[in-house]
Design a protein around this nucleic acid. Structure first.
Lengths: 339, 339
DNA sequence: AACCTTTGCGCAAACCTTTGCGCTATTTTG
DNA sequence: CAAAATAGCGCAAAGGTTTGCGCAAAGGTT
């Protein structure tokens, strides 16, 4: 092989054997038109020179890149990386690659990523909205042009776009009732931004849980944060500064719960004796903090798989109606919420 | 735009304006041959129809895909995902995309991933070896064909391939001396597989640290594991089962240290009173476990950036000699190692 | 008026693959 | 034995982009 020639083409094989390019192509695809003898020789040479078809050429020809764009709020939390693993598994089975971008929780980067990925000619997108995202025009071009799109966890336009979520309402209700059963009555909730479906739905479950336990909702006990550690710490502070502190706190996710845990300890309060704590998502390290954190496990890998399946459903079945897959979660009780 | 037509091409623009494809191409590239008037009209239309060049076609023409393959042992630990973020940042500046694959710490998947990525025509690879990898033939094709390759953290063939590592020897030595200064004398080390440079170098630093403190090396106190939580728990058990237990343990990374922490607690021993503990890598949650874990911070983001820069150096400067970048780490002292 | 230069644009090849169609021998059929 | 069928292969187009070359018309020079 010549220096600098990194991949060989049909042309190289054709020149070597002394036949035309089309004959080589057909031989490799076992086309009946080509004599067994020639086919054998070509396939042998191709194997020796380890020929592989050029995906760029195939992409041009078939107008298909076999690439899926995946946009997540960040790359470094277990939640998203595990979902990505799930997507990758299904994609690999189908011979697709995934292109990953992080929005860093900003709308601006999300918009740029969508544009970039389309320019790269991905066949479609699987997206979890950034925290800031409350307008959705940047997805219009996809929807209008029937470019496959799937949302997961943080979703929008669920009537037009297939999505994967967990049963947030039910899970939050379960948490509230769990607190109640263990003797806690002043139950606080640290929510996220209001426009996110996950925040709304978990709040709804929280309220419905309170009601089913006969506890009246106290607005003081519902605080908001932007889901960063820093802001979660502040939100926790606001709860702990109340004249009547909560005796239990439920955070919208484990990052928030970890921050709350630090702040509670910093103020010399004990968990769960003084304040019980429950998270949401069940990051790996929930088992390793002290006390171990009660949380809602997410079937992260399955979320990724489901999202990828919805994606391929659109590829193979463009006319199908948008479907929403709802996965179940489980409350995993650990020390942080049981006296 | 017709239904199903997802991207427009030079041809579409040419037809619309009534000029040839080459004129459109030149107009968009501001070629002086094209009259200002025509150029203006073409650029206006291109903007309106938001034309973007088809990367497949460009790739075919220029024999360059502007894609980098990245292979990591897993996707879900903070260490790797943060490094990937660093790579992505530099890649984005250069207009490159990254294609990510996980070896799941297996040689088999690593070999497959290398092959797949080459078939996809990535322009080169940035790799962290899997735990199992002790033979390196699957990289020969890259080296022989001058396809850019960079290793980071777990490296091999450092004379032929540029790489990014941290000062493992020095860091491990620092840990050992830190233990000594805080009054610990029976210092154990839970190592990883022997063929990995990180395991060897940290062992070397451990030994050199002991020597510099005048402590004689006791082979019983150096145990190995495959770096999984399970095996790390077993390895910890072996240390704790010794007739003369260590009074300090140093784990090859934080995953191992977390497992050790659990096992030590499970046996009713206190940290750091009975046994001091130090990790390596400083995963985010080191601050959140109890007690907070002393560890070696890795400049993960910078590792990714450095790896990407070495990569582009090869692209832009194919004849340059393979360089090894060594980044500094810092010992962050927390409660787990100070009585 | 006859020539040369410039301006402004189109043709076609190249990158790689697939595939409908056409072509030439050979083989089969009536 | 002539006609028709078939086996086995090549040509060329398509997909999108860039770019060397060619070409026509306009302008300028003697």
């Amino acid at each position: 092989m010549e220096k600098g020639k990194r991949h060989i083409s049909l042309k190289d094989l054709a020149l070597e054997i002394g036949v035309s390019i089309s004959t080589v192509s057909r031989a490799l695809n076992n086309h009946p038109d080509i004599s067994p003898e020639v086919t054998r020789r070509i396939q042998k040479l191709a194997a020796e020179m380890n020929y592989t078809p050029n995906p760029l050429a195939m992409g041009l020809l078939k107008q298909a890149t076999r690439m899926i764009g995946v946009i997540v709020p960040d790359l470094v939390t277990h939640f998203y990386s595990s979902i990505i693993s799930g997507i990758e598994e299904v994609a690999e089975e189908k011979g697709y690659y995934i292109l990953i971008a992080s929005s860093n929780e900003t709308l601006k980067k999300e918009i740029i990523s969508v544009r970039n990925m389309l320019n790269t000619r991905v066949e479609g997108l699987i997206v979890c909205l950034s925290q800031e995202t409350k307008s959705y025009e940047h997805f219009d071009r996809l929807i209008k042009n029937d470019i496959p799109l799937v949302f997961f966890d943080r979703v929008c336009r669920i009537n037009e776009v297939p999505s994967v979520v967990v049963n947030n309402v039910d899970a939050a209700k379960k948490i509230t009732r769990h607190f109640y059963k263990n003797g806690f009555r002043r139950i606080g909730y640290i929510a996220g931004p209001n426009h996110l479906n996950i925040s709304q739905e978990r709040a709804e479950g929280y309220l419905s849980g309170l009601q089913s336990c006969g506890i009246e909702f106290n607005p003081e006990l519902l605080v908001q944060c932007n889901m960063s550690s820093k802001d979660a710490t502040r939100a926790t502070g606001r709860l702990l500064d109340l004249p009547q502190k909560p005796d239990a706190i439920f955070g919208i996710n484990d990052t928030v719960a970890f921050a709350a845990m630090k702040e509670i300890k910093r103020r010399g309060l004990r968990i769960p004796e003084d304040i019980a704590l429950v998270g949401f998502t069940d990051e790996f390290h929930a088992t390793v903090v002290d006390p171990p954190l009660t949380s809602i496990t997410h079937p992260t890998f399955e979320i990724g798989q489901a999202a990828a399946r919805l994606f391929f459903n659109q590829i193979e079945n463009p006319e199908s109606e948008p479907e929403q897959v709802v996965l179940n979660t489980k409350l995993v009780v650990r020390k942080s919420s049981v006296k």
